[in-house]
Structures are given as structure tokens and as C-alpha cells.
């Protein structure tokens, strides 16, 4: 198995090094560190990594982080982009996602205190999946909480729905809920049916379907 290469971009040296250490400890090889959007894009162009961890707010102008992240997603589709943000608003995450949930993640900086969560997300994104912060998903669910279809779900089902949206694999979800994968598959079938969505065996497409459903309230 090849070592996963990662680039960490953050204008704060403490955070940059902290994240780099967590990633290194978690099996990544941090090949470059960047302080702003341009350095990040240069580094990615020089040697596209498996993963770029990007601070949403970087110089110049503060918005360079998100812009650079979007540029990487567009120009380097093989690079997983994990954005670290201080903003809870799902709009940022949804804009980052764009039309697909492949190789993308959006985590609040709070997660830096939960090493395992961060590494888990980093691995998922690097592997082609998605990782959305539970708090952001909760925001989306909150907006839809009065939706008839959502109220038809049991608490357990709603919990599963959140985990699906966060981008976890079936196995991981089943593990977290303490049920078997088989049971989870049944449950997710029920969830999709109640929401009027078509269940999809492909994880990313399933995540996207759920996110689109949840986003319905915002737009």
C-alpha cells in the first residue's frame, strides 16, 4: 500500500504544524506546507497529493482558502480536498461540494481536538469519499426538521441519515449504531423510502441524494 501524500495549508504556523503532525501520526506523509492560496496551488501543481488540507480563510484577502480549494477540485480531480473551517453555515460546504461529493470534506476546526475524527475524515476524502462535519449536517437537518417526510423517521433512522450525510461508509455507520451492516442496509432502505428518495448502492451518490434533500430547505 502506497503512503498517502498530503499537503497542509494554513496561515497559522501552529495549526499548520499541528495538523501536519496529526496527519503524520495517522499514516500520511506531509509533503508540503503552504501559508496562502498561491503556495498551496503551486505545491499541488508541483506534485498532486492524495490529500490537501486547506484552511478556509487564508491570505490574500481572506477568501483565498476556499477559492484555492475550489480550484483544486476543478483542476486536480484526483486530489482529495479537506477544508477546515470556522463557519457552521452549510452554504460554504455545499459550495465546496458543487455537483459531487467525491474526494471532498468540510470540517469545523473544533474537530482538530478530536484526532480520530480528523484522521477518519482525511482517510475518507483521500480514498475518494466525502466527510462533512456533523455540526454542519445538523444545521441542515435542523432546517428541515418540520418537513413531513423527515418527521416520519424514527430517531434511530434520523441518526443514521445524519451519518450517511456525513459521508461514512455503511460499515462505519453500522459500527457506530451498534448494528450489523445487514440491518443498516434494511434501515437505509426504509429511510430512503420514507424520504421518497431512490436508494443507491454507490456511497457518494447516496450522500449526494441525502444532501440535496436536506438542502431543499435552504434554497
Amino acid at each position: 500500500m502506497t503512503t498517502l501524500r498530503a499537503i497542509v495549508a494554513d496561515d497559522s504556523v501552529v495549526i499548520r504544524q499541528g495538523v501536519a503532525r496529526i496527519l503524520s501520526d495517522g499514516g500520511f506523509r506531509v509533503v508540503a506546507e503552504a501559508r496562502d492560496g498561491d503556495e498551496l496551488l503551486d505545491a499541488v501543481a508541483a506534485e498532486p497529493p492524495h490529500l490537501a488540507v486547506v484552511d478556509i480563510r487564508m491570505p490574500p484577502g481572506g477568501s483565498a482558502g476556499l477559492t484555492a480549494a475550489l480550484t483544486i477540485r476543478e483542476r486536480f480531480p484526483t486530489v482529495g480536498v479537506l477544508v477546515l473551517s470556522q463557519f457552521l453555515e452549510p452554504e460554504y460546504a455545499l459550495r465546496l461540494l458543487g455537483a459531487g461529493v467525491d474526494r471532498v470534506g468540510y470540517l469545523l476546526k473544533d474537530r482538530l481536538g478530536e484526532t480520530q475524527e480528523l484522521l477518519d475524515a482525511a482517510h475518507r476524502v483521500a480514498a475518494g469519499g466525502s466527510a462533512l462535519d456533523p455540526a454542519v449536517i445538523a444545521e441542515l437537518v435542523r432546517a428541515r426538521r418540520r418537513d413531513d417526510r423527515l418527521t416520519r423517521l424514527t430517531n434511530r433512522e434520523r441518526e443514521a441519515l445524519g451519518l450517511i450525510a456525513e459521508g461514512h461508509s455503511n460499515r462505519a455507520i453500522a459500527e457506530r449504531l451498534g448494528i450489523t451492516t445487514k440491518t443498516l442496509e434494511g434501515m437505509s432502505g426504509a429511510i430512503f423510502a420514507k424520504l421518497g428518495l431512490e436508494d443507491d448502492p454507490d456511497v457518494n451518490r447516496r450522500v449526494l441524494a441525502v444532501l440535496l434533500f436536506l438542502d431543499g430547505a435552504a434554497g
Binding site: S12, V14, I15, I22, L112, G113
Partner: peptide, 14 residues
């Protein structure tokens, strides 16, 4: 402030 707190958190984490 927030960046510094995140830094503190990372240090605590370590």
C-alpha cells in the same frame, strides 16, 4: 483569537 484557541487546542491534544 480563534486561531490561537485552535492552536491551544492542538497543543493540548498533543
Amino acid at each position: 483569537a480563534q486561531q490561537r484557541l485552535v492552536g491551544v487546542m492542538l497543543a493540548l491534544q498533543q
